[in-house]
Design a protein around this nucleic acid. Structure first.
Length: 462
RNA sequence: GGUACUCUGGCAGAACGGUUAUGCGUGAGCCUGCAAAGCUUAUACAAGGGGGUUCGACUCCCUCGGGUACCUCCA
């Protein structure tokens, strides 16, 4: 599998002969997660599910930043503690992402639970004479790390000439950034240099090395983290270990909304909670996978609606497969192999999810076509189903289970309707259809039989 | 201002130095008691502008222009 590495700007082959270790920068837990967070995490979820489907072992570590000025501000605003804020939003994170059908990471380390590791990390940096204590905290000396700027392709001299960098007299150089901030107000921890809390970037350096070692396979996050967050992580980690940090840097593009940036200040964020209620997990996932991960995607009602239509086709396909019972008349192996291979090739090539989706839709279309012609037999359906499920699971799509009791009721109603139809009592027949619709069950009348599908309930259709 | 990414048909969005992407939409039709869903078929002869390399460029190079992100917290 090839992944475009943003550090070298080259495609790098993943070594899939051994376990793949991934560190993903997660969220700062001070508010609801939004659709932008969802995209990044869903992309890595698909990467992971694909590799795991090939029986490659994955270790995915994703942090929660639970100490940060924004959390503290929020706590002050609500007159509560930072811990309560972060606990609340971590719970909400799990609530949202479980619903989005994201497989839980191997580990979700929190900054506040790794203060010891962070302090040890800073001690090393000081020993290596690349960090220094000062009046307001401990700072990383950017000038001592000559490769600073290699990820974001920035030049130190250009950054220094930039007027927007805050002047802090206690820094030796305006570019230096805090690895430890002195503070008397909670949350604080004791350190050899004074009471305070860790700087933003240091937790990821300390926790990634703890769980994944000094160099691991993939480091990921949103595009907006390239600078300064990931640039600073590289500086800290490599200055500490004197060896290369992550092998591949993978960044997920932003989600805009009707062409504009999604941001708290503009008040145009769409929380996952909101979008889940309106559209459901499958449509969000299809939407997030609809473009290449490195590019911007634009959130709009039209795009979500388009993905809803696609999702209905997938559901139809699934139920056609479930209900298939005619005789096998067609050779289906070829189409299964073709779409399956194209699907894999697309993902192998820098996780081209849009192209993979094309293959998946092609399989569903071929299946629906056979069904429409009454040529979908039981055995073929079994063969297709296997591939259908494989793709569906890698994409993380989910079709709700039908309970046996429910199934019986539906079948009974349908046979009653059939009787009415045969007797040309169409009003009675339509009443049954309406009743089934209320149960979110949609009927599909084929030439010889009626099949049904249970639709996912979403607000957008009301 | 700097850096990175990007600019493909009404919309979304790939691949590829020369061949139909695909999907949505739209038109027509099939199926149906009617719908819905599904299917069939038609439709877009597209590549931001201008140069260049080439037998040939959407694909490579240059340049101009638009967009997005980052340069301050951000997935």
């Amino acid at each position: 599998m090839k992944i475009q590495d943003n550090l070298s700007n080259l495609e790098q082959k993943l070594d899939t002969t051994k376990k793949i270790k991934i560190y993903l920068c997660g969220v700062t837990v001070y508010d609801e997660s939004h659709i932008g967070h969802a995209r990044t995490i869903i992309i890595f979820d698909v990467l992971r599910k694909y590799l795991e489907s090939k029986e490659i072992e994955i270790e995915l570590v994703q942090n929660f930043t639970d100490v940060d000025d924004k959390i503290i501000n929020r706590a002050n605003f609500e007159d509560t503690t930072a811990e309560k804020i972060s606990t609340r939003y971590i719970e909400n994170y799990y609530r949202d992402f479980d619903k989005l059908n994201v497989k839980r990471a191997t580990n979700y380390p929190k900054a506040t639970e790794h203060i010891e590791d962070i302090i040890k990390f800073i001690e090393k940096l000081i020993n290596n004479q690349i960090a220094y204590p000062s009046k307001n905290g401990v700072y990383f000396a950017v000038s001592k790390f000559p490769e600073y700027g290699k990820l974001s392709k920035k030049r130190i001299d250009e950054l220094e000439s930039g007027a927007r960098i805050e002047i802090d007299e206690s820094k030796k150089d305006p570019l230096d950034f805090a690895v430890w901030k002195f503070s008397e107000t909670e949350p604080t921890w004791e350190s050899p240099w004074g009471k305070g809390r860790p700087g933003w970037h240091i937790e990821c350096s300390a926790m990634s090395v703890k769980y994944l070692g000094e160099n691991f396979d993939i480091h990921g996050g949103g595009r907006d983290l390239i600078f300064p967050h990931h640039e600073n992580e590289i500086a800290q980690s490599e200055a500490c270990s004197n060896s290369p940090f992550a092998k591949v840097w993978m960044h997920v593009g932003m989600v805009t909304i009707n062409g504009d940036k999604m941001s708290k200040s503009a008040g145009n964020t769409k929380s996952i909670k909101f979008v889940l209620e309106k559209w459901g997990a499958n449509i969000i996932r299809l939407f997030c996978l609809s473009g290449h991960y490195s590019k911007v995607i634009d959130y709009s009602e039209e795009m979500l609606k388009e993905n809803l239509i696609k999702w209905r086709q997938v559901e139809t396909c699934y139920y056609e497969l479930v209900h298939a019972d005619s005789n096998d008349q067609e050779e289906v192996i070829q189409i299964i192999e073709k779409t399956g291979k194209e699907f894999d090739n697309a993902l192998e090539d820098d996780l081209n999810t849009h192209l993979a989706l094309s293959s998946f839709f092609q399989l569903t279309k071929e299946t629906n076509k056979l069904a429409a012609e009454g040529k979908l037999g039981k055995e073929n359906a079994q063969l297709i189903k296997k591939e259908f499920h494989r793709m569906k699971n890698i994409l993380g799509l989910h079709i709700p289970e039908i309970f046996e009791s429910e199934k019986q009721e539906i079948d009974n109603l349908i046979s009653n309707r059939e009787i009415f139809r045969k007797e040309k009592k169409f009003e009675d027949a339509d009443k049954i259809r309406d009743k089934l619709n209320e149960m979110n069950v949609e009927l599909i009348d084929h030439k010889e039989k009626t099949i049904w599908m249970k639709k996912e309930k979403i607000k957008a259709e009301n």
